[in-house]
Design a protein around this nucleic acid. Structure first.
Length: 556
RNA sequence: GCGGAUAUGGUGUAGUGGUAACAUAGGAGGUUUCCAACCUCUUGUCGCGGGUUCGACUCCCGCUAUCCGCACCA
């Protein structure tokens, strides 16, 4: 970052704080790292970005909105893999109380201690007794998992059970799959979205709003049938070349459709959501020339993902990943299925029913039961594996290693035709996950505009109208002769309108008031002057052009 | 987590072991026929905790936070 960039960043941060857009949380108590407030102006901004995001996806028609708890039981995040994946293993020097990461201590005793499990680390630590980097002692406490998730206890006392603040909103949507499936009349594809807080107890939050401990996430889980090839219409993006940083291929410029045809984007549905993401980001004011998609390299991708792209936005901190779009396969639903024994599947009918001729053997329960007692179940399973031409009696070797002699009276022939019309499968998931705070940061970064001389910088926040926190400022040119009253009544009328925010300002010169409005990105200012009193017209002044036109107050 | 730097009104800065200053912003009033004009009055500051001292915003220690490297980062 150049000195000029740093200076601009400092002026911008100062403005964001001064004008109540984004500011450090709990500051009167000394502040807390990794926590930010959206202030009186920023709160509105955040909400409008969220609303735009929701509308963007809900308009697809097969997507619904959920809201799941942030406090999440241990078992849920154990099933999802977060308990294992988000952990660092720590040990404490009993001599000086200094905590160290166990894998770091053992680096000279093992080629890749990062890959070891907790008990393996414990064994190696006991065996190698590394010295404490702080005091040199070799006496270590037992290894404990320190998780990057905030942990908590659900309930009190002995009945309390462990839980975490969720590190992502996604898991609630996976655990809601049965309700989603039912709601969607058991037809795929469908999606669910959720906006909410996520928590990660980052070791070292940095760079303002880029890495936070509590942050706003907006995630979409889109469930698809992997047996159907998806058909998406890419024509809205024809002619829109996108910057793609592809694995092993470097930076390319092409349309989404071309990238899919060249198999650079490996799944059409992933490509479709990349395109929709492009639309969303530009809709809320991200400069499309400072937006690119970067493909995860094979070793960077989670093991279950088959393709993953980050939308990266360029701003004061360089390229920052703000959206991740991953094809997660059946990983999540399968993981929760395994952990719970519940069915998280969808039904698909075959084009032609599968007709299965069954001709074989099964046991006659009334004879085989008494004969084999505890082994009867295993015998039945073994008999049902036999082909129709087997002869009885015969000796069977069971899986448990035991041998039984099966007589003819223990078995009976099974001959029937089964028609299987379909099957239950685990849907695949494409997940676009948005970091709202990072996006808002870049919206502000891209909108923050300085003009004028160096000693008198004029600041304008060129926010897109749909996310601007304040829609109108209403000014009386002077607060006399009834102009003040007229402006007040216009302001009051605007405030009554749903989803409209108006501010009234009568202090300072008219130019100063325009400047104040420009600084927080108010798109339109309405001014009441002497002529207004005579003919009920006011001037409307546009933020970006400074142009004014006169309209009747009924047209506002 | 390690190393370095920093912390003074809302914001940006000056300054001192003896009651803290400038600019700007904010409020009230005046003036002004539309882009940070001007005049008067006014509000508000030494991050937190300990120590040294008759006295600490200043010196020392610890903490917290911010910035920059390094490390970490489904």
């Amino acid at each position: 970052m150049t000195d000029a960039d740093t200076a601009r960043l400092e002026r911008m941060s100062g403005m964001l704080k001064r004008r109540g857009i984004v500011l450090p949380a709990f500051e009167i108590h000394g502040g807390a790292k990794g926590f930010y407030d959206f202030g009186p102006v920023g709160g509105r901004l955040r909400n409008r970005v969220n609303q735009t995001w929701l509308d963007h996806w809900l308009s697809m028609g097969n997507i619904v909105e959920l809201s799941c708890p942030t406090v999440t039981p241990y078992a849920v995040l154990e099933a999802s893999g977060h308990v294992g994946e988000f952990s660092d293993f720590m040990t404490t020097c009993t001599a000086c109380d200094e905590a160290s990461r166990a894998d770091t201590l053992l680096e000279s005793y093992h080629t890749n201690p990062d890959a070891l499990q907790k008990d393996e680390l414990q064994a190696l630590l006991n065996q190698s007794q590394p010295p404490c980097p702080s005091c040199g002692a070799t006496s270590w406490s037992p290894v404990v998992a320190q998780n990057l998730m905030f942990d908590t206890t659900i309930g009190a006392g002995a009945s309390g059970r462990p839980g975490f603040m969720r590190p992502e909103t996604a898991q609630g949507m996976f655990t809601s799959f049965p309700a989603l499936y039912r709601h969607n009349r058991e037809r795929l594809p469908f999606g669910a979205v959720q906006i909410g807080k996520g928590y990660r107890n980052e070791i070292s939050p940095r760079q303002g709003m880029i890495r936070l401990r509590e942050f706003n996430m907006a995630e979409l889980e889109y469930f698809v049938n992997p047996h159907e090839t998806s058909q998406h219409d890419f024509s809205p993006w024809d002619g829109q070349a996108i910057s793609l940083v592809a694995d092993q291929k470097g930076e390319l410029r092409m349309t989404f459709k071309e990238a899919i045809e060249a198999n650079i984007i490996r799944h059409e549905t992933v490509g479709f959501f990349m395109a929709k993401t492009f639309d969303f980001l530009t809709k809320v004011g991200i400069d499309h020339q400072r937006l690119r998609f970067r493909q995860h390299e094979a070793d960077e991708m989670a093991h279950y993902a088959s393709d993953c792209w980050d939308a990266e936005i360029h701003g004061s901190y360089g390229w920052v990943e703000c959206v991740g779009i991953a094809h997660r396969g059946c990983y999540d639903l399968e993981a929760h299925e395994k952990a719970t024994g519940k069915t998280l599947r969808a039904r698909r009918e075959f084009d032609e029913p599968h007709v299965i001729e069954i001709d074989g053997w099964t046991t006659d329960g009334s004879k085989a039961g008494p004969a084999f007692r505890a082994l009867a179940g295993a015998v039945k399973a073994a008999v049902e594996q036999l082909s129709a031409d087997e002869q009885f009696p015969q000796t069977l070797h069971l899986e448990s290693g035991e041998q039984v002699v099966v007589e003819a009276e223990h078995v009976k022939r099974v001959q029937r035709t089964e028609t299987v019309s379909g099957e239950w499968y685990i849907p695949h998931v494409v997940e676009p996950a948005f970091g709202i705070d990072r996006i808002i940061w870049h919206i502000l970064d891209h909108a923050y505009d300085e003009s004028g001389k160096e000693d008198e910088i004029y600041t304008t926040l060129r926010l897109n109208e749909r996310i601007a926190p304040v829609d109108y400022c209403v000014f009386p040119l002077f607060e006399k002769d009834g102009m003040g009253e007229m402006a007040q009544s216009i302001h009051a009328k605007l405030c009554m309108k749903a989803a409209t925010v108006s501010m009234y300002d009568s202090s300072g010169s008219i130019g100063r008031r325009y400047a104040r409005a420009d600084e927080i990105g108010v798109p339109r200012c309405i001014t009441v002057d002497h002529q207004s009193l005579e003919d009920q017209t006011v001037t409307v002044r546009m933020r970006d052009t400074g142009e004014q036109h006169r309209i009747h107050i009924d047209e506002i």
